[in-house]
Amino acid sequence: MKGLFCKEWNHLFKTMTGYVFIALYLALSGAVFTLTCLLAQSGDIKSYFSVFNTVSVLLFPILTMGLFSEERKQKTDELLLTAPVTLTSVVMGKFLATLSVFLLPMLVTLCYPAVLYLFGVRALAVTVGNYLGLLLLASACIALGEFLSLLTDSQFVAAMTTYAVFGLLLLAGSATSMVSNPTLQAALAFLAITTHCQGFAYGVFDLMEAVYFLSVTALFLFLSVYMLERRRLS
């Protein structure tokens, strides 16, 4: 898996995808931090994360759109699938490499709570909780994006599909308050991926929400392996 991880990491940076993602991530997170904390003269990091969690969801397709679609288009999937490695390691190698690329700008944004700390805001639990929530959100979104990139051999189609699915997941949160049916409300609340970070936003380690994100991640990684195997059999 180490080889696959390194190859994917190299690929993301040699094709500029990684740089574009990091640049957009830092630009948008900087803008959100400036607006929600600096200009608002607020030391509450929660307000930054409440906006940026939603924004970050729209950045993940940049990283995931080509994960498998590009391999299929260039026929390099033949190299991966005829190599003496398991399908699980192929899927996991790509997933971990993508997640690690996401971690780079996320680590850079640690300077935001550091700035607030200099201004005397000391909210360690809230900061750690929010970063953990964002990490879990990223892991679920990357797994879902990886699965969606398996369904086509066009990066563009993969990106559009991922944006459509992520858009629906974000809209589900807003739609929760618009429906009166409790079952439908519960279903929409379950689908609204960013609202599951709310527990972490207050610095509380919410085991249920952690399980939710990890389950979504595991489900889509499993479905990716299943799709690869099914394609081999079809």
Partner: peptide, 27 residues
Amino acid sequence: IGYLPELPPLYPESTVTEHLRFVCALK
């Protein structure tokens, strides 16, 4: 097994050495 498909599975952005090193890791 060593397999060369009709269209060689190569990553155009990699150098020859990088590609061969990756295949070594895979194998």
